[in-house]
């Protein structure tokens, strides 16, 4: 089953073609990697999937439904959650509140219910707190739940972003460089965590990562972007040996 389909997506920024005719199909419950040099358009792709930009060309289908032009918060409510390359936490709020806010899309109590403390609001608060605490236990930040988010170490902040994304009960999670700034041991744990959440929560995960070891290890399929174009996709083994990929990307560093 295909959960997300991109059909000939293009995006431009003032004449710069950040994405050029990119087509991709992501299968349900797979861990899919997107790699490519700096400026290749990886983050732009995520921004398009999550509705931050509306692509100038092409179609975006989530579970068969066309979603280009849908507002970011509606896309989130449909079940697409994400993390950000340049961490975007609610810095001056507690770790717990960060995850509680992540539950926003799956809860409903409005202004009056909140102000008057109506039963629906109280019931949801119990649900939200419970859910947030469980997620914090899952990612190992439960002990730090009352700290400000910006007091966490870098790696912890990245994990908190994952917890917040999971609070949305998503079916698709986009992770933009989740391992950036982590040490090898943290990365090892991250890989375990990503696998675990996919297996336990039956999620589909798309991740952008520069660490080839991490990508090749956990991704079942990979797409390679270069100057906004998709130059290859397939299993890690196939992509690793693709001459064009070696020349334009892997050849340099890895």
């Amino acid at each position: 089953m295909i959960i997300l389909e991109m059909d000939k997506i293009s995006q431009e920024f003032g004449g710069l073609r950040a994405l050029d005719n990119v087509s991709l199909k992501i299968n349900e419950q797979e861990i899919f990697g997107i790699i490519g040099p700096n400026g290749a358009g990886k983050t732009t792709l995520f921004n398009i999937i999550t509705g931050i930009y509306v692509p100038i060309e092409g179609d975006l289908l989530f579970k068969g439904q066309r979603i280009n032009g849908t507002a970011p918060y509606d896309i989130a409510r449909m079940g697409i959650a994400r993390t950000f390359q340049n961490i975007r936490l609610f810095d001056k709020l507690s770790v717990l509140d960060n995850v509680r806010i992540g539950c926003h899309g799956v809860t409903h109590s409005g202004f009056w219910a909140s102000v008057l403390g109506l039963p629906i609001s109280r019931k949801e608060e119990v649900f939200i707190l419970d859910r947030a605490e469980k997620l914090l236990q899952l990612i190992g930040l439960y002990e730090k739940r009352y700290e400000y988010a910006n007091n966490l170490a870098y790696g912890e902040q990245r994990r908190l972003e994952i917890a917040r994304a999971l609070a949305l009960e998503p079916s698709l999670v986009l992770l933009d460089e989740p391992g950036a700034g982590m040490n090898p041991q943290e990365k090892e744990e991250l890989m375990k965590l990503i696998r675990q959440i996919r297996d336990d929560l039956h999620l589909t995960i798309v991740l952008v990562e520069h660490d080839m070891n991490l990508v090749m290890n956990i991704c079942e399929r990979i797409a390679v972007l270069n100057y906004g174009r998709k130059i290859a996709d397939g299993t890690p083994a196939k992509v690793k040996n693709d001459p064009q990929v070696i020349q334009s990307y892997l050849g340099a560093g890895a």
Binding site: T50, I52, A71, P72, Y73, A76, R77, A81, R82, F84, R88, L89, F90, D91, K92, L93, D97, R100, I101, G102, C103, H104, G105, V106, T107, S109, G110, F111, A113, S114, V115, S121, E124, E125, I128, R164, A165, A167, L168
Partner: peptide, 21 residues
Amino acid sequence: SRVGRSLFAIRENEIAAQSCG
């Protein structure tokens, strides 16, 4: 409440707030 936290979220980071629905 849920609504109040979402107001704080907007102050802290609007794009992240949207990504939370």
